[in-house]
Amino acid sequence: MRRVDVPPYVAAAVLLLVASCGWGGAADGESGRMPGAPTGLTATAGSATSVHVMWNAVTDGPGIHAYEVYRGTTKVHEVPGSEHMVDVIRLRPSTMYVFTVRARDKDGRLGPSSREVRATTPAVVTADHSPPTRPRDAAGRTVAARAVQLSWAASADDRAVVSYDVYQGTTRIHSVGGGQTATVVTGLRPATHYTFTVRARDAADNLSPASAPVRLTTPGTDDGRNTAPTGFRATTHRADGAYYIDLSWLPPRTDGVITEYQIRLDGSPATSLVWGGTPPRGRARYSFYAGRDAGAIHRVRIRARLPDGTWGGFSAERTVTTGARGGAGS
């Protein structure tokens, strides 16, 4: 993402975002509903002492605040609701483990447990400092508007490859067993460009270099309506001899938490907003400097960086005039 240099007074306004944002309560109809059980749970040994646990996001019920991961009956991890995987570490080699996951909403209500999955850690490997070779012949194809299939040639290792990690950009999004050289990645967006790489891991946790990148564009169309902020409003106010543009909006409904937005002013990027704390769940608000001249007409809209790292659709565009009666926009 290209960053735009802004004057000090605008930068100061950006820093005020964390302190000045307001938000409302949960969306209508969410109260009283329990989170559903996580589905699609998998567990894959990542090394002699770790297991990689993954699951699908819970979408039925209210917004998910966190996921609790259990080894047997013991809770071993808690991850934010925007994350759907975790490495369970400090395990014993050559041991079978049982894992389950439960979702918890923002009101503290804990949903039912997922189905049980089992994984067995391999035997410990001593004095192994040699990583596997780079996965060769990485390739892929789209299989739907929201899914792609990836494949690669097996890596070599002086002992054995235990797992393969799949990355989207710089983020690990999936892991499969060492005997598997293909996988399907789901939960993508239509008409979106993605870059994937694969790395091999051995029992001593040595990680290979990344494969060649696989660049794919999912088919279909994405008009942005499902990923754009809604209820977007823009007005102006005057303070200390200057005019400011006041924005408010509802974050898009996504599988994860929105922490970054881009504001476009008169067709060009004006600034990026990054929340330093917990972002609002309801209506968010932000003000920024617009100059000292009355009667200036500005067009403004906003978009969010989604949890998968891509930009969502733009909100509706609003037009405001500094010094207009009531500061109203259209």
Rank of each mutant, 00 (worst) to 15 (best):
L15I: 08
L17K: 01
L17C: 12
V18C: 06
C21H: 03
G32R: 09
M34H: 08
A43Q: 03
N56P: 02
G61T: 08
E68H: 07
V69A: 04
R71I: 07
E78L: 04
P80Y: 00
S82Q: 04
H84E: 02
M85A: 05
R90A: 15
R92F: 11
T95L: 08
M96L: 11
V98L: 08
V98I: 08
T100M: 13
R102C: 10
L110I: 15
P112L: 13
S114H: 08
T120L: 06
P122C: 11
V124D: 09
T133F: 04
R134P: 02
A144E: 12
R146T: 14
W152F: 07
W152D: 01
A156L: 13
Y164A: 05
Q168I: 05
T170D: 13
S175W: 01
Q180A: 15
Q180T: 15
T181G: 07
L188H: 07
P190V: 12
Y194D: 02
T195I: 11
V198N: 00
D202V: 03
D202S: 14
A204D: 01
D205W: 09
S208R: 00
R215N: 14
G220Y: 06
G220D: 09
G224Q: 05
R225P: 05
N226R: 15
T227D: 01
T230Q: 09
R233N: 11
T235V: 08
R238D: 10
A242H: 09
P251C: 04
T254R: 11
T254S: 10
R264E: 14
P269A: 11
S272R: 13
L273F: 06
G276V: 02
R283D: 08
R299G: 05
G309F: 13
W311G: 08
V320W: 00
A324T: 12
R325E: 03
